[in-house]
Amino acid sequence: MSLLGNRWTRPEVGAAAGALLVWAFFALVAGEPFRGGDGAATYLNAAAPLGILSVAVALLMIGGEFDLSVGSIIGVAGMSIMLLTVHFGWSVWPALLVTLVFCLAVGLVNGLLVVRTGLPSFIVTLGTLFILRGLAIGVTRQLTGRTQIGGLDAVEGFESARVLFGSTFVGGLRVSILWWVGSAALATWVLLRTPVGNWIFASGGGPAAARRVGVPVGRVKIGLFVTTAFAAYLVAVTQALRFTGADALRGELQEFRAIIAVVIGGTLLTGGYGSAVGAVFGALIYGMVQQGIVLSGVDADWFQVFLGVMLVVAVLFNHRVRDMATRATPREGGGEPT
């Protein structure tokens, strides 16, 4: 019986077990404040923005690319919404729409640059990371003299947009959690049930082989960059409507946190293997550790140490799984001693 063909070795299994372990740990150490419903709301709310981002980043990383610009897109999108409304006097919905188009265009440019030049996406999107962050700060300061803008709640259309993006539903749970769960479900469906999902795996796992059988690898990758840009936009919108304002520095380091969540979720850094569900658990672990440390009264400085350790452990684990998956197992009909 093949060990890796079987269903127990889905990429997210390690992350699910990890999430359970982390929960049990803080349930013991932090006690009731963590275990109860309020505790759950705290860490779920904390995990949701990262979760939305991570689901999209997981698809992209399975497709074999990185997007370091997502954090900056969050900053730019937030500022775009605030400038268009508060500074230029638009109402909320047109501002959301124009910002959406801008963000999708950024994703398209990222994708086109990577696919056309053949340069590593790590470098290309590192470039867009700085360009967009600089633009967010520079343009905002030029126009308003500040880098933070508030007052969205006074703008027409705020209430309807807030219900959809910035409200809470049951027991203090934010609506961003629904966006998170919804995007994870959609991503999982695409990945596992549709031809495009098959192409995403192939674009990361063997782009040359995929091209030879007619997979439009370039288009798949461009589509994935647009998807990550869209996820960043969604995060920016939920935050702008909840805080009724934005900060040009919002989203800083989120690109790395998303990569961490995705890798903890069992996706290979080298692409071709992983899952959106894993990224959900990765983001959940992030949220639980972040809030759990605070609730247990430990200095929050230790959070980063914990996160780094989780990352290293996850990478080691994932690559072991990958080695097992790619090693030929001798079977009847001819195993060669090589």
């Binding site: 549709t194 999902g197 098959n198 192939a202 796992g205 063997g206 082989a209 059988v213 790619t326």
Partner: peptide, 29 residues
Amino acid sequence: LAVIPLMSVWRNFFLGAEPVRGRGPLRTI
């Protein structure tokens, strides 16, 4: 360049020509 090791036998076999059912954007393998 024949096949992709990380993907399953059936996913490799149908790569680029997946058998689908349903129609439109809701087509599934």
